[in-house]
Design a protein around this nucleic acid. Structure first.
Lengths: 238, 238
DNA sequence: GTAGATTTGTACGTATGTATA
DNA sequence: GTATACATACGTACAAATCTA
């Protein structure tokens, strides 16, 4: 592990454990240099990671102020997100593979992904159940030339873990789009929508280290189960 | 302007002008050092800005690959976003101030913002019209101790421009939450919803340089007019 | 397949500028 | 005004990944 990554993780842990509570200052860069026995640049890289993750705000001449994260996790929106629920593991969640087969790339998909029309891809459709209701439907399309084998057992778990740890794929970045669309008959049949006429659709193009696009995903959420939180900085960084 | 910011802007422009087309490599860091006559760190900071903005992907031992942005701006979703529409200025857009007055901070808002209950704030409600339909409704709540004066003329334009350029406020960062909520009677009355029973709500807490929260905003979008695009990197940076 | 050149990543050191207290 | 703290910038060295001959 890199030094700056280690320092980042250490400071992150201390912030989360309230050793550095919100509205207080972190030790100055000079102090951190002595505490960790590294150079200034290494400290600054660690602090940049904290900044980008929304943990602190640096102010010239003053110091690094600890922010209180997740104001939105508190009261206002009664429900916490699916992801949160899963992470806390308190609520049982289940994945059902509805469809897993090889198909030829349709024309519309080819436009988005730049995969050759009719090239062979996997189509994977999965239902995500919470409290015995299908509230998320995931549709994945994957290049078979990159993912040759896709066992159903892996699809029931996390395909990303399978890609990265077993296939050694290096996933680099993704372009994502969030929008609301009317429900189709297929979606109505596969989800428990309580009569909603719309769903939230998160579309993603996922790329490897060599900048090849190898996956297109549509993650379809029931309106009341969708939530997206972001930390945004005005202007620059560094 | 900083050197690295200038270099970033220069490279960004060249990428957008296709002088560095997608799938090609930027000049190496060593070449850029000579081209711009600066040190390596300066070049690397500029490249980091490009990386974070999703323009390039750096690969050790290889170089900086130019990505093609905005795959999603092309075909698939027939409509482009409100923001896009405004930016291109082709479609007339109009802002109507519905409400602008001082109120006392209600309890629920106080919980979120940590403003004292009953402290004085501005309440500003604005309709955003496109093609003569109200498709966005913006509700803003602002500390009067920070924004003492809020002329209606400014509210009809961009309040942010007013805050930053005329009041000299330094807006630093924001926490945002996106979710879908059922419509209230108030919203139904103020927007043209075509019978939709839901709206997309973007809630934001906005902070100043000194980490004071000075604004809370709810931006309410008609379902078919909402769109959010993101570039996401897996793992680290720097 | 290996060796060497190229390219980015990490790390340290130093100096100066600018904002804050 | 002085001290402190972060920001920018230059320079150097070596490591790790990639490419080429």
């Amino acid at each position: 592990m890199n030094k700056f990554k280690e320092i980042f993780l250490d400071l992150e842990e201390k912030i989360l454990n309230n050793e550095y509570p919100p509205h207080t200052l972190l030790p100055s860069e000079n102090q951190l240099i002595k505490m960790y026995g590294v150079s200034r640049e290494t400290i600054r890289k660690a602090l940049n990671l904290l900044t980008n993750a929304g943990y602190i705000h640096k102010k010239q001449g003053k110091g690094s102020i600890v922010l209180d994260m997740n104001r939105f996790d508190f009261p206002i929106s009664g429900l916490t997100s699916y992801k949160e629920l899963q992470k806390n593991q308190h609520i049982p969640s289940e994945t059902i593979v509805v469809e897993l087969k090889k198909i030829a790339t349709p024309k519309e998909l080819s436009k988005l992904t730049e995969w050759p029309v009719a090239s062979e891809i996997w189509k994977l459709v999965r239902q995500r159940k919470i409290d015995n209701e299908v509230v998320i439907l995931d549709k994945d399309y994957l290049l078979t030339s990159v993912v040759e084998d896709l066992p159903i057992k892996k699809a029931e778990d996390s395909i990303y873990e399978y890609f990265e740890e077993e296939l050694g794929l290096n996933i680099a970045y993704a372009q994502k789009e969030i929008l609301v669309e009317p429900v189709t008959k297929e979606i109505k049949d596969l989800m428990d929508l309580h009569g909603d006429e719309h769903v939230v659709v998160v579309k993603s193009l996922v790329y490897l280290e060599d900048t090849r696009c190898f996956e297109y995903t549509e993650s379809i959420h029931r309106l009341d189960k969708f939530r997206f939180v972001e930390f945004a900085r005005r202007r620059k960084q560094n």
